[in-house]
Design a protein around this nucleic acid. Structure first.
Lengths: 363, 363
DNA sequence: AGTCTGTATGAAAGCGCTTTCATTTTTTCA
DNA sequence: TGAAAAAATGAAAGCGCTTTCATACAGACT
C-alpha cells in the first residue's frame, strides 16, 4: 500500500516559481537561499502539505538521518530507560531511531544488526562488548560508526560509553566483606553472551579471593532476570547452604526477588541476611528494607551514546572511551554479619556503614 | 560519514554473469529465476559481502519494509513490553521498527510521527485514541495505514487493538463495592492527553454513582507514574480524608507506592485498607500482600498490532477492532471493608472473594 | 512443421531527491 | 563607474535499486 500520490518537491518548486534545486536548498540548507525565496518555498510547502521523501533523500545524500540501536531486550527497565533517552536525544537533533532487540541470541543480534545497516543507519548503538566474530567482521566491513554501551571496551579498540563493571562489582564485594560477611553467594543473570553479567561474577569472585575466600560454583546461580526467578534461586541457594549470610545479585530485579524470599521465610534483612543489588531501579529505594545497590545512570548512557555518535557524524572528535559515574548506594538491605555467623576470624564490622562517595568519571 | 564504497547490485550481477534485473530478482523474488542462476547470484552475494541498499530499494519499490511505533514513553514497562513484542514480530517478518516517543506531549507526538512518515514507514502503531486534530489530519492526508493500541476506538473509525478501559474499570470498582467499600479514592496518572487514564477515572466514578456514591474531585489525585509519587499521593489522600477504606490506582506502579505507604503508616492491607492496581506487572503477584489488579496482555497488544498491520500491507482484510482479553486478578490487597467503617448500610461483604473468570475477547 | 504457451532473462525507464557545476544577479570596492 | 568577488539560482547528472516491457527459447499441441 504505497503512499498516495502526494506532492513532490517539483510541485513545490513549480508552485513557488523556483527551480527544483532552489526548492531543495530552501528546505535542507535554508541559509543558501534568499530570504524572500525561502519564504515563498515554505509557503508552497505548507500549502501543498509537502512531506519530503526520506528514501529519495537518503539515496541522493547518502545519509539517512537515522541511527540504529540494538539492545538485548526492552523488558529490562535499564535498557528501556537508556533507549528512551537515546531516542529523545536523536529526535531533538532531527534524527530517528531504528530499534531492534535480540534477547541475548547472538545470531539474532547479527540478523537485526544487518537489517539496520541495510536500512542505511548512519550509526549504531550496541550493548556490551560481547559480540559474535561474524558481527565484528560485518561491522568492520560495513563501515558504519558505532558505540558500545554499558561497558568500557576492554581492548580499547572501539568507541564506548559505559562504566567499569569490574570496579562496581569489586566495591560491592568489598562492602560486604567489610561488614564481616564470609559466606557469600552470587545471584546472576545468564552469563552466556553477556559480558556484563560475566564480568560481575568474575570480579566478585576475585574480590573474595583477595581475602582468601573461595566462591565455589555451587554458590553462583544463573537465572533469568525476573523477580520470581530471583526468589526461587535464593530459595535453592539457602536450602543447599544455610550458612550463607549474604547474596550479591546481578541486578535489582533479582535482588527484589531475594528480598521477598527472605521475607517469606522469616529471614530478617539485614539482621540475619544481607542482600545487594545492581542498577538502582526506582523501586530499590522504596522497598523496605531499602536495597543496597549500585546506581547506574541508565538514561545518561543512552543520551551520551547518541550525542557522541551525532558528534562523530558531524566530523567532531570524541574520546574513544567515556566513563559514566556509578555510585554505591548503601541502604538498609546490607548490614554487619550476624553475630553467630561471624566465625573464621572475621574482623569486627563497622556498625554504621558510611555512604561512599561517587566514583567520578575520568574526564 | 557515508558508507564505504561497497559492492552494489551491478557488481553482484557482473560477478554472477547475469543482468542487473536478474540479480535483483534472484534476491527479492527468488521464485522467478532459474535455480542455477539463483545460486550463482547467491554465491556472488556472499563473496562480495553485498548488502542491499535500503533507501534505493525503498525508492524504487515504494515500500520501506519499515513500520513506525509512537509510544508515550518506554519508561513505563507496559509500553516497553508491547514495543518489545512488536519489534520481535516485525523482525520475524523481515520488517524493521522505527521507534519514537513523545512523553505525553501532543506537539512532540505530531513531530515524531511526521518524522516517521518522512522516513517512509509502511505503517504506524499509535497508542490511544487521544490525538491532536493536526495529527489526525496529517495521518488522513499522508495515507499511511495505522493501528491504535491500548484502546478500542470509541468512534469505530480506526483500526485498533486494545481493550475496554471502561469495562475493566467498572469491574474493579464493582469488586470494591461488593466488598462493602464506600469511601473510595482514585489515584490516577495525569489524564491530560491520556484517554486511557481519563476513561478509567470516569468509569470508576460512574460505577460508584451507580450505587449512589459520589467521587468528589478531592478524592481523585493525578500524579506522575512513579512509586514515590504514588506513595506521596496516598499519603496526602489519607491525611485529608482518614475515612477512606480503599484506593483504586491507575496502574500498578502507583499501587505499589500505595502499598508501601500503607506499610509505612502501619495500615494493614487488606484488613484496614484495600489497594487495587491496573496492568498486572510482574511484581504485582510477588509483593506481599499480592496486588489485586487487572491483567493486561501487554505483549499481545504489540504482537497483534504488528501482525495486523503486516496483514493489511499484504492486502488481507482484518477486523477493524480487535479486543484483547483482560482479567481481574483478585489477590490479597483487597478485602472486605473493615467492620468499623461499614456504615451507611453497606450490605455484608463476601469474606472470600471469588476469583472472577476472565473476560474473553469477542473473536 | 507451425503456432501457442509459459518460463527465464535483459534493456531501460524511472523512484524523488541532492549536489556538482555553470550561469546569472547582486554587492563590494578601488 | 567598472571590474572583481560574492551570493543566488538553475540545469543536469546521478544515488542504487525495482519493475514494466520486450525478447528468446524451451516444450505442448494441432
Amino acid at each position: 500500500m504505497p503512499r498516495k500520490a502526494s506532492a513532490r518537491l517539483d510541485d513545490v518548486a513549480r508552485s513557488a516559481g523556483v527551480s527544483l534545486s532552489t526548492a531543495s536548498r530552501a528546505i535542507s540548507e535554508p541559509g543558501l537561499v534568499h530570504p524572500d525565496t525561502r519564504e515563498r518555498v515554505q509557503r508552497a510547502v505548507a500549502m501543498l502539505g509537502y512531506v519530503p521523501h526520506g528514501a529519495a533523500r537518503a539515496l541522493a545524500s547518502r545519509r539517512s538521518r537515522t541511527l540504529g540501536a540494538v539492545v538485548p531486550t526492552l523488558d529490562n527497565p535499564i535498557f528501556a530507560s537508556s533507549t528512551q533517552a537515546l531516542q529523545r536525544t536523536l529526535a531533538a537533533a532531527g534524527y530517528t531511531l531504528l530499534l531492534a532487540s535480540h534477547e541475548y541470541d547472538p545470531e539474532a543480534e547479527l540478523a537485526v544488526t544487518r537489517a539496520l545497516v541495510e536500512r542505511g543507519v548512519d550509526g549504531l548503538v550496541l550493548v556490551g562488548s560481547d559480540h559474535s566474530p561474524e558481527l565484528a567482521r560485518f561491522l568492520a566491513q560495513s563501515n558504519v560508526p558505532f558505540e558500545l554501551t554499558w561497558t568500557l571496551d576492554p581492548a580499547g579498540h572501539h568507541h564506548c560509553v559505559g562504566f567499569s563493571n569490574r570496579l562496581a562489582s569489586i566495591r560491592m564485594a568489598q562492602h560486604l566483606l567489610d561488614l564481616g560477611h564470609r559466606e557469600i553467594a552470587v545471584l546472576s543473570g545468564y552469563t552466556a553472551n553477556n559480558d556484563r553479567a560475566r564480568e560481575r561474577v568474575a570480579r566478585v569472585r576475585e574480590a573474595l579471593a583477595g581475602r582468601g575466600i573461595p566462591l565455589p560454583e555451587a554458590r553462583v546461580v544463573e537465572t533469568a532476570f525476573s523477580v520470581a526467578r530471583g526468589r526461587a534461586a535464593l530459595r535453592g541457594l539457602l536450602e543447599q547452604d544455610p550458612k550463607l549470610t549474604a547474596v550479591i545479585c546481578g541486578n535489582d530485579i533479582l535482588a527484589l526477588g531475594a528480598l521477598l524470599e527472605c521475607a517469606a521465610r522469616g529471614l530478617a534483612v539485614p539482621a540475619d541476611f544481607s542482600v545487594a543489588g545492581f542498577d538502582d531501579i526506582e523501586l530499590a529505594a522504596e522497598v523496605s528494607p531499602a536495597l543496597t545497590t549500585v546506581r547506574i545512570p541508565t538514561a545518561r548512557i543512552g543520551q551520551r551514546a547518541g550525542e557522541r555518535l551525532l558528534a562523530r557524524l558531524a566530523g567532531k572528535r570524541v574520546a574513544k572511551a567515556e566513563e559514566v559515574p556509578v555510585e554505591l548506594m548503601l541502604r538498609a538491605s546490607t548490614g554487619p554479619v550476624p553475630a553467630g555467623a561471624a566465625r573464621r576470624g572475621a574482623k569486627r564490622a563497622p556498625v554504621n556503614p558510611v555512604r561512599t562517595a561517587a566514583r567520578k568519571p575520568r574526564r
